[in-house]
Design a binder for these strands. Structure first.
Lengths: 345, 345
DNA sequence: TCTATTCGCTTAATCGTTTAAGCAGATTTA
DNA sequence: TAAATCTGCTTAAACGATTAAGCGAATAGA
């Protein structure tokens, strides 16, 4: 039925030598294997004649490395993660590694299951964008001494390798920028979460306000549950723009929040930035093409992805080395959605 | 250093039996293996005590199936493909399969290399969104009897399994819709390509015009090279709106073309749909949030993805079975960008 | 009581590779 | 000239799991 693939021993048989010789030749170790010149050539000829392709499974089983890494992200259909995946894929291939991607949907149980599947498939290491509640996963990877790098989000209580953006600073910059542009009552929409990167973003936002002698009102901070984004973001925005202290600008702390938020803002026929200034996290074509291009904090996804892979490669070489913490700055891309307010207000 | 994972023989040693017994128990074949009750229990106890996890590499090497499928797409950072990837991933996992994704960048050589890597990793089958010039790849997979399903694009000259949208019909519907809305001079922007799905889209567009007694002008069809989208789309649109027979509506045959086209249309300060009606292929948040929501042909990505996986699963079961061709209709989602023209024009 | 059958287990081959160890024969060294 | 080294190759174990075949001992059948 299926034509059996040619193996080392097929070549060996045809040439009339042992598989050992063939192996040496095929893996470029003719010197070490002390293979004769004519025999080596004969082996190469037969190999290409039979179109020999090595079985990576056998190789991996033998030497305990699969040259495969597992990438666990929230959702590959989210452009932020899709771009990360792309970077990780490219950078890994450059290093001779294949990537297996899995989406956790921000669900720690799913992430745990995924991790187990990938561990059983003997990946050499992981790059992980953690879901909330993934402490167990991190501890388990440490326990089994599986190399891994946390990306975009990390747990300050654990000593791990990680590559993240400076979220507090990014938020601080976003908020300061709005203040400089003349906005004073600035809302902040985040996912309801106890994750560090979220609280860092909130902290940065608060500090920027305080630093400008603006007292952050509790009502300005809205936390939306990830599982019910579409519904809860409507409530949140309603309260923000129609509450006791209505806002004149808002920061979306995430791409998904921005998209859903903007949809509702359109429905309400609020004009950006006249009715509402906006700065968002995340990035995507949406922000360019919106009638009023959206200002956003650009996270250098390419740098994040590349650093994560490089760091993991380093860790694979040297599992015992000191853990590295890489923090990368986000850069404000100012657009129309946060342009200067007219003073006449 | 790294704590060696527990293997069957570790358990066997500790219980004092052969690995065969342990294997029977761990794979739920106690009956077949005729394993004693107490011994079976002892094995289970020790297994969970040592936290035994099977080595899927060894299993795969032994029985020739990896329960892995390769997914080759153009670019994971393109939302259309990202969504496909997501569907394929989910549906595969339901079937106990893991997916390895690779991006070809619409480049046949890259696709070929990717295919080889995945073949060497012993994937059980492929789902492929072909790049132009991938005939060699398809023929090779057939030659080595590797099961595969073509997704979204296929080669009519080869007898393969495939799952595609009815592109001619989709294009026909898109164009007819514009005509019904009062547009008469309709442009069509496509990638320069000899791929079947592209020419089908062009064919459907032409037929719709002819069917309405409109003679399609050659100048209305613009083909841009994938590698130079950003530059060439500007020329294309310039010529379309400022040429001898300027258009009043345009169809973008692809998500990427739409995004780049819309950016330039914004720059030109053309108003949609008053200056230019629009219908696009592809789908994404952009289309919802554009100041004038974009009409588009909705390709049911979930159905495409699910069908591709299911078809591949079937083919894995029955490699010899008759090839299946699944064609799925796209549905027009009419929005503001193609709303009825005022008669006064 | 003698032969079949069942039970509970072990042995060993297999998947495709890698690589340390060993073995003749030829060549060099002292 | 005897010992040491080099050359070109083979043998065989190992990675971790699966599973057909086989082997005593106990049980059943007649």
């Amino acid at each position: 039925m299926k034509p059996k693939k040619t193996s080392l021993s097929d070549i060996a048989k045809q040439v009339g030598v042992s598989t050992a010789l063939v192996s040496y030749v095929m893996s470029g170790k003719e010197k070490e294997g002390r293979v004769g010149l004519e025999v080596a050539q004969k082996i190469r000829d037969v190999a290409s004649e039979l179109n020999y392709q090595p079985n990576l499974l056998a190789k991996s089983l033998r030497d305990g490395r699969t040259h495969t890494i597992g990438l666990i992200i929230a959702d590959i259909s989210n452009p932020f993660f899709a771009n990360i995946a792309r970077e990780v894929e490219d950078e890994s291939r450059k290093n001779g590694y294949t990537v297996i991607i899995g989406s956790s949907d921000e669900n720690a149980d799913k992430a745990w299951d995924l991790m187990n599947v990938l561990v059983n498939r003997q990946v050499d290491g992981f790059i992980i964008v953690s879901a909330e509640g993934s402490e167990k996963l991190v501890l388990h990877l440490q326990a089994i001494k599986m190399p891994f790098v946390l990306l975009d989000r990390h747990f300050p209580q654990f000593e791990t390798d990680f590559v993240v953006t400076d979220n507090a600073k990014a938020s601080y910059d976003a908020c300061s920028h709005l203040i400089e542009s003349g906005y004073r009552r600035i809302g902040f929409v985040a996912y309801r979460s106890r994750m560090f990167h979220i609280s860092e973003r909130i902290r940065g936002y608060r500090e920027a306000l305080i630093n400008s002698q603006i007292t952050p009102k509790v009502d300005w901070l809205k936390e939306v549950r990830f599982e019910a984004t579409e519904i809860e973001i409507r409530t949140a925005i309603n309260e923000l723009v129609r509450g006791e202290s209505p806002i004149d600008a808002v920061i979306f702390s995430t791409y998904g929040l921005a998209v859903n938020g903007l949809k509702y803002i359109n429905e309400l026929r609020l004009r950006v930035p006249d009715d509402l200034g906006i700065v968002s996290f995340g990035q995507a074509e949406v922000f360019d093409l919106y009638y009023c291009p959206i200002s956003f904090m650009r996270q250098p996804i390419d740098v994040l992805g590349k650093n994560a892979v490089d760091l993991l490669m380093e860790r694979l070489q040297n599992p015992g080395g000191v853990r590295q913490h890489i923090t990368i700055d986000a850069r404000l891309v100012a657009r129309e959605s946060s342009r200067k307010k007219h003073k006449m207000e």
